[in-house]
């Protein structure tokens, strides 16, 4: 991905050199032309066309913001409820992603999702131990959300 972006920047600079004018607008036009050229030659690269990956990152960011808002509403409900009747606990969640930065992003997302907080990443990096605010209520849906996050992060790193 980084190589494709670098190539695209080089194409934009070469475009400016051809035009012999160095305005931001020329850079932009050159960048767009380079984007089209990279799209046409995409089968020569070993990774995907990089715009797809940028779209996946944006998608992840939007999901992140939505989850932050939802988690705050959930915490507010528990804190301001008249009776403390939640059932907290720690459960283990096996994960399928291996790279360090992927695990970091996943644990950040889990920490900021409704009612869950990462306690420990196991030593072999295959399990996350998560403290949940209300175990019987959310365990099923939480697993669904986690799989969704894992899929989104895989989309980015694919």
């Amino acid at each position: 991905m980084a190589f494709q972006i670098l190539l695209n920047l080089c194409m934009a600079i070469i475009w400016m050199l051809f035009k012999n004018s160095y305005q931001p607008m020329d850079f932009f036009v050159g960048y767009m032309t380079g984007l089209i050229i990279i799209f046409i030659f995409r089968r020569f690269f070993d990774s995907r066309f990089y715009i797809y990956r940028i779209l996946a990152i944006v998608h992840l960011l939007l999901v992140f913001i939505r989850e932050v808002l939802l988690s705050n509403i959930a915490v507010l409900k528990i804190v301001l409820a008249p009776k403390l009747d939640m059932k907290p606990g720690i459960f283990a969640l096996p994960i399928g992603i291996t790279k360090d930065w992927e695990i970091y992003i996943l644990s950040c997302l889990i920490t900021l999702t409704p009612g869950t907080l990462v306690m420990k990443v196991s030593n072999d990096q295959k399990t996350l131990y998560i403290h949940a605010m209300d175990i019987p209520d959310i365990e099923e849906s939480i697993n669904g959300i986690k799989n969704g996050f894992e899929r989104l992060i895989r989309d980015v790193s694919r």
Partner: peptide, 26 residues
Amino acid sequence: LAAAYGVVRLPDVYTRNHAASKATTL
């Protein structure tokens, strides 16, 4: 304010941390 209230009200370290680390962030 709700985060501070949660830190006072919730029963143990872990649940307090839920309130403190989420509500104050936002």
